[in-house]
Amino acid sequence: MTLLFTALTYFIYIWTKRINGKYKRIWTHPLILCPVALICLLAVFRFPAAEYLTSSRLLTDMLGPATVAFAIPIYKHRHLIKKYSSIILFSVAAGSIAAIISSYFMTFLVKASPEWILSVLPRSITTPIAIEVSKGIGGLPALTTVFVIITGIAGGIIGPQVIKLLSIRSPIAKGLMLGMAAHGVGTSKAMEYGELEGTFSSLSMILGGFMTLLWSYSLIPMLIKVFS
Rank of each mutant, 00 (worst) to 15 (best):
S102L: 09
S103P: 06
M106F: 15
M106R: 08
T107H: 02
T107D: 05
F108P: 07
V110G: 10
K111M: 14
K111E: 15
S113L: 13
P114T: 10
P114C: 05
E115V: 09
E115I: 04
W116N: 03
L121A: 08
L121E: 11
R123L: 11
S124L: 01
T126G: 02
T126I: 11
T126Q: 03
T126M: 02
I131C: 08
E132C: 05
E132A: 07
V133D: 04
S134T: 00
S134F: 00
S134P: 00
G136A: 14
G139D: 03
G139N: 04
L140S: 09
P141W: 13
P141G: 08
P141I: 06
A142T: 13
A142R: 11
T144G: 02
T144V: 03
T144H: 06
T145W: 00
V146Q: 11
I149A: 13
T151S: 10
G152R: 01
G152A: 11
I153K: 00
G155M: 02
G156K: 01
I158S: 14
I158L: 14
I158Y: 12
G159P: 10
P160M: 00
P160L: 00
Q161L: 10
Q161P: 08
V162L: 13
I163N: 02
I163Y: 05
L165F: 15
L165C: 15
L166T: 12
S167R: 14
S167P: 03
I168C: 07
R169Y: 10
R169I: 08
S170R: 13
A173H: 13
K174P: 00
K174Y: 03
K174L: 01
G175L: 00
L176F: 13
M177D: 05
